[in-house]
């Protein structure tokens, strides 16, 4: 299977470069597609208010919020679509949404 992985092109150009049956051999390779460009608003954390409950992490539809070494949370802006769920659900009010400016 390793050989197949090496042989399968990330983006096939020609018909003979397509994997048999359009199988994808690299699990989760959709992560190379960055959905952060969809975003109009960006979440920002105020760690002074954060109680490290992790609700933002759990309710993120993208699964792009992670915990840092100190137990605080941050979003990976490569993927964050700016839905605002984390800010809305953060009951201590530690997360605020800010407009993205060009």
């Amino acid at each position: 299977m390793k050989q197949k992985k090496a042989a399968s092109k990330a983006w096939p150009e020609k018909w003979h470069e397509i994997n048999p049956g359009c199988m994808v051999f690299i699990p989760g390779n959709a992560s190379t597609y960055h959905t952060g460009s969809w975003r109009a608003q960006r979440p920002e954390w105020d760690n002074k208010k954060c109680i490290k409950c992790g609700l933002c992490y759990i309710f993120c539809p993208e699964g792009c919020i992670s915990e840092d070494a100190e137990g605080f949370f941050k979003a990976n802006l490569d993927y964050c679509k700016g839905c605002g769920i984390c800010a809305h659900e953060c009951w201590p009010g530690a997360i605020k949404m800010f407009e993205e400016v060009e």
Binding site: M1, G21, C22, M23, V24, F25, P27
Partner: peptide, 9 residues
């Protein structure tokens, strides 16, 4: 060996 089958085009 997780693979995905039946991906759309």
């Amino acid at each position: 060996n997780p693979i995905s089958m039946g991906c759309f085009n």
